[in-house]
Design a protein around this nucleic acid. Sequence first.
DNA 1: TTTACATTGTGTCAATAAGACACAGGATAT
DNA 2: ATATCCTGTGTCTTATTGACACAATGTAAA
Lengths: 255, 255
Amino acid sequence: MEEEVENILQKGGELFHPGLSVDCVIFGFHDNQLKVLLLKMKHADKWALPGGFVYKEEEVEHAAVRVLQSRTGLGNIFLRQFHTFGSPSRSDRKLNRELLVSLDLEAHENHWFLQRFITVGYYALVNFSSAVPRPDATSEACAWWDLQDMPPLAMDHNHILQQALETLRKQLNDQPVGYNLLPEKFTMPELQRLYETILGKQLDRRNFQRKMLGYGILDRLEERKRGVAHKAPYLYSFNKEKYAAALQDGLQQGW
Amino acid sequence: MEEEVENILQKGGELFHPGLSVDCVIFGFHDNQLKVLLLKMKHADKWALPGGFVYKEEEVEHAAVRVLQSRTGLGNIFLRQFHTFGSPSRSDRKLNRELLVSLDLEAHENHWFLQRFITVGYYALVNFSSAVPRPDATSEACAWWDLQDMPPLAMDHNHILQQALETLRKQLNDQPVGYNLLPEKFTMPELQRLYETILGKQLDRRNFQRKMLGYGILDRLEERKRGVAHKAPYLYSFNKEKYAAALQDGLQQGW
DNA sequence: TTTACATTGTGTCAATAAGACACAGGATAT
DNA sequence: ATATCCTGTGTCTTATTGACACAATGTAAA
């Protein structure tokens, strides 16, 4: 594992597009909370967004797909580019130098890893339960963090996360957000919590249901949720065709 | 002029962040039409979006500001990043090689200008009449093109333009689009044409006026437009403070 | 000078959507 | 049995949207 990192850090200059990386904000939804997948860095006491480099002849988005796949084990994930971050001051060269030094690698000025990096930000929506968080070679842990309770992040990753969130909010009506974040079957209250978490505000239960059903993109199943200490809610699932069709025109406006 | 280009192409490897560029979609509005500023390339029979490279320690956005300034003569322009284009196939190395050759420059494989380029796309909204189009060193012309009647564009610039337009459409309610594209004083029909052009559809004259005035961001001036062969429309101007305030919450939804 | 024309300013009415709220139903916990 | 807590559904009011009619007013033509 360590060897792999050393290898990449040494040969990176030949392998990767110079000064370019991708960072992924991976959203999940669990326990009625929006979650983000983070990595605990080995050589610094900070958490960071999963990221990676772009091979010289690789699609940038494909690099993001690789990151997604290797951190969650999932393929075919909903993924969208949202912003590119390129401030010269965002690259923490000191931090990167420390990583090189900690691995007994030569940290000369021109080392590709110590240059300024531009990073393309992607956000992903994944099914929380299907994902299996796996740290990468430079991390000692990979875990979901509650959006309400984030640790300090490395470099400008906090800023990147905020931008991703804002984008998610704005795209709530254009993108199949619910479809990608929820399990196959879910209840109306669960869907509502998801919207409330993303929007950061409370919604009226009854009006929410009316509007959501109005889109005609949900199928109500015969089944009801079991094991709850009150009236059992119905289970719903997305009607994939109708959802896709409705998104063409945008899901009405206004949450 | 030619010398300047040669100089840049030779020293670019030391000056610029490798494999990175910016491209600007500069929108203007004139004669009730949405316009885009394009450059006619010298060494190819195609038009292209104004673009440039990013200095090693320069903010990416600042590179875009430089492009804006040098193509239009304008400073303090409304500018937004909208997408980053990074497909390996987007770089037209053949085209770039031809440019080098045409300038009698050595076109070896490793020349910085012949590498793959990632480009960050920005769109700008400018006051058509204030802008003074100026070609850059590699262009023989710089001119406004009607959006309805675009020439073939180089590389993936057509795709970039389409993305910019789509972004503009979606941001019509979040961004001060009218404020930046129209002159100080304008009529309601002019504002409506602008919205219609961006949205690509007709709007009802009376409902448009009601909704627009409803925002409370316009000041109606005493003046009326003169020299028109029919009833003279009022002139309006944006109330900067109220506009800024209204945009905080987003301008309602739904056009 | 009068009239035709094109386009603007303003208002109304109906249909639709959004916001606020009340009450009955049903599964577990005591 | 019954209390509790949340769910399912309906109604009433208000705000927004869409469709449309008519009077007003500058130039151009007669």
